[in-house]
């Protein structure tokens, strides 16, 4: 019981507090996973192809006027990062509006969303 109480009285990204923080941490985890997978995955893939299929094969494969690996690293990944930031902000905007609405409702009625008056 005291452990639970202690946990509720602290911030830990791996044990987010119930409510607003849980949703936020979930989104952060998903975005960081996509971020990590895109960087590690793309470079590992390029490295493996360069090793196994001869690097010149990659340099001869042209996409958007550039060798494919060059386009992925130099143009696609920064674009993807912008997209991830965009998704995060859209989610945070909605999240903040929802949080604000529930706070106002609680202050006005003393009840949480879905809670029925006695």
């Amino acid at each position: 019981m005291s452990d639970q109480k202690e946990r509720r009285r602290s911030i830990n990204i791996f044990l987010p507090l119930p409510g607003t923080m849980q949703g936020e941490v979930r989104v952060i985890a998903l975005l960081l996973l996509a971020w990590l997978a895109s960087v590690l995955g793309s470079q590992l893939g390029i490295w493996l192809l360069e090793r196994s299929a001869d690097g010149f094969w990659l340099t001869d494969l042209i996409f958007f006027n550039l060798p494919i690996h060059f386009w992925i690293s130099g143009q696609f990944l920064p674009l993807l990062f912008i997209g991830l930031c965009l998704l995060f902000n859209l989610w945070m905007d909605r999240h903040e509006v929802r949080h604000m609405e529930s706070t106002i409702r609680f202050r006005a009625t003393g009840r949480k969303k879905g809670e029925v008056a006695p």
Binding site: E50, G55, L58, T59, N65, L66, P67, F70
Partner: peptide, 29 residues
């Protein structure tokens, strides 16, 4: 020009045999 310069990469490869964009040529993974 962020796309246009790609033709220079291809020209270097095809005309001069210089593979400037070769990945991990000067550094390991």
């Amino acid at each position: 020009p962020q796309f246009g310069y790609g033709e220079a990469v291809v020209t270097l490869q095809q005309q001069f045999g210089y593979y400037w964009s070769e990945p991990f040529a000067s550094i390991d993974l």
